[in-house]
Amino acid sequence: MNVGDRVRVRTMNPPGHNRAPRYVRGHVGEVVRFVGDGRFPDESAVVGSAAHREDIVTVAFPSAELWGPDAHSGDRVHVDLFVSYLEQP
């Protein structure tokens, strides 16, 4: 996953802890930054510091992609997402 790639946030609804806000699930954005890695939250919420680590990227979503035509064109919302939350669009 590289800066400039278009990605879609997986449509999902897991019963446990998860750090993909529901307003971006299923939506397409562009990777704009590699953040680093971090403990995978869904797992860390259960097993603590033994959780595996995973890469995190910042994805920029056009506001209209998230909220429809009422959104101000050109504005963007950036969300930091663990790479396993993402798929090819």
Binding site: R19, A20, P21, V35, G36, G38, P41, I56, T58, A60, H72, G74, D75, R76, V77, H78, V79, D80, L81, F82
Partner: peptide
């Protein structure tokens, strides 16, 4: 201004 892009940053991981 309309011509300025607004960028919202939602800190959803540990950044």
């Amino acid at each position: 201004p309309d011509s300025t892009e607004v960028r919202v940053w939602d800190a959803s991981a540990e950044a």
